[in-house]
Amino acid sequence: MNVFRLSGDVSHLLAILILLMKIWKTRSCAGISGKSQILFALVYTTRYLDLFTSFISPYNTAMKVFFIASSYATIYLIYLKFKATYDRNHDTFRMEFLVLPVLVLAFVVNHDFTPLEILWTFSIYLESVAILPQLFMVSKTGQAETITSHYLFALGMYRALYIVNWVYRYYFEGFYDLIAIIAGVVQTVLYCDFFYLYVTKVLKGKQLTLPA
C-alpha cells in the first residue's frame, strides 16, 4: 500500500461520509442524483463478490463491506426515508444508456471470460461513468450546494489518486492493468470540468453555479 493508494481510499471514504452526513443533517437529498447512487451500488455489488472467494486483508474486507453497505444506505435515504426531498424531476438521465453498453463492453473486453471476472470488468467500466446522472443533474439545475461540491470533489480525487498509484506500482512493482487504467482515466476526465469550477468558485467561497 503506497501513499497515493491510501489517499485515494481516504478520499473515497470521505466522499461517502460527506454525502451521508449532508443527507442526514439537512434531512434532505435535494440535488443528489438517486440514479448515480443506484449505479454505484451496482458497481460495488458486482466488484466485491470476491469477498466470498478470496481474503486479502482486514482493511480490504472492511472497506469493501463499508462501500457496499453505505451505497445501499444512501439509496434507502434517497428513495425511502427522505423521498419527499428527492429531486426526481431533475434526475432524468437514463441509466440503461450506461448499463447496457457497459455490459456489452465487459463481455467483449475483459481479462478472462469467467463470471466473476466479467462482473469485475463490468463494475470497473460502470464506475467510470456512474457519476454522469449526477453531473447531468448539476448541469440541468445549473448549480450545486457547496456540500455537494465537496462530495463530488472528494469522489473525483479518489480515482485521480488511484491513477498516480498505478503509475507508482508500474515503476516500483511492475504491475499494471490496462482495463483499470483506461477506465480510471475516463472517470477522472469526466470530473475535469467540475474540478475547474470547484477550484475557481467553491474554494473561493462561492456556490457552484454554471453560466446560463
Binding site: R5, M63, F67, H111, D112, W166, F175, Y176, I179, A180
Partner: peptide, 10 residues
Amino acid sequence: DGRNGLKDEL
C-alpha cells in the same frame, strides 16, 4: 490471469 497483482485494490 490478466490482472497483474492488482486484486488487492478496491
